[in-house]
Amino acid sequence: MTDNVQKMKPIWFFVGLILLVMGAVILATGVYDLVRHVESNKVLSHLHPAVWWGGMMTAFGLLFVLLNRRAEVD
């Protein structure tokens, strides 16, 4: 008898996916602004939060996606 019950990806995979995409977009924007010396009127802009925060989101998202890429739940 074959097991044809459909398996679902765990929620952690989707959490990783959305953080990965959003983090990558924020990181890319931050790197672009840093490289192109884009003027910013934001306070603490010299800390380039988009680069390190976006980078952290990307890494976190990637980790979740990789850890759960083959995981399935009932």
Partner: peptide, 14 residues
């Protein structure tokens, strides 16, 4: 609005 550059503003509102 004070701290977040573009991209992060979208994340905060989201």
């Amino acid at each position: 609005a004070r701290y977040f550059p573009r991209g992060l503003v979208g994340l905060g509102i989201t």
